[in-house]
Amino acid sequence: MKVAEVTVYVNGKEVKVPENITVLEACERAGVDVPTLCHHPRLGESIGACRVCIVEIEGVKNLQPACVTKVRDGMKIKTHTERVKKAVRFNLALLLSEHPNDCMTCEANGRCEFQDLIYEYNVEPIFGYGSDEGPYDASSPAIIRDMAKCIKCQRCVRACSELQGMYIYSMTERGYKTLPMTPFEIPVYETECTSCGQCALFCPTGAIVENSAVR
Rank of each mutant, 00 (worst) to 15 (best):
V34I: 15
L92K: 02
G31K: 05
A148T: 03
P204R: 00
L92D: 00
M1Q: 03
T191E: 14
H99C: 04
E28W: 14
M181I: 07
K149T: 01
Y121Q: 01
C196T: 02
T81K: 11
E5T: 02
V55C: 12
Y129N: 03
A93K: 13
P18Y: 00
G12D: 05
T105P: 03
R72G: 04
G74T: 01
N122G: 09
E25N: 05
A30Y: 15
C53I: 01
D33T: 09
E45H: 14
E82Y: 06
V17F: 12
E25K: 15
V71S: 10
V88L: 12
E5G: 13
K2R: 13
E210N: 08
R72F: 15
M75T: 08
C156I: 11
Y169P: 05
E185M: 11
F90N: 09
E5C: 13
E28G: 00
C106S: 06
L95Y: 12
K2C: 00
V8R: 04
V15L: 11
V23Q: 14
V23N: 15
N11Q: 14
I77P: 15
P141A: 02
K61G: 00
K2D: 09
V188E: 00
C203S: 07
G12I: 05
A148M: 02
E190N: 11
R158Q: 02
K85T: 03
V8Y: 04
G44V: 06
L201H: 09
S140Q: 04
K70Y: 13
L92C: 03
S46N: 08
L95E: 04
V6E: 09
V52G: 07
A142G: 13
G130A: 08
A93D: 05
G110W: 11
E162P: 13
K76T: 13
V157C: 08
E192C: 03
E210Y: 15
N122C: 02
A148E: 00
D73Y: 10
V60P: 06
P18R: 07
I77S: 02
D102C: 12
E113S: 14
T81Q: 06
P204L: 04
K149R: 15
E14C: 07
G74F: 12
S46T: 01
P18H: 03
S212Y: 10
K85A: 03
A142H: 05
A148L: 04
E124F: 10
P183S: 02
A4Q: 07
S170R: 10
V23L: 07
K16F: 07
R155C: 15
V15H: 02
I186Y: 06
N211G: 07
C160P: 09
P100Q: 02
I54D: 04
V123G: 01
C53K: 06
K61N: 05
M181C: 04
E192N: 12
E173Q: 12
S170N: 14
R42L: 14
E45G: 13
V3G: 00
P41D: 00
R215G: 00
E192S: 14
A200V: 10
Y189E: 13
D73V: 10
V188R: 09
S97V: 04
V55S: 11
S97D: 06
K78W: 05
I57G: 10
A148V: 00
P18F: 13
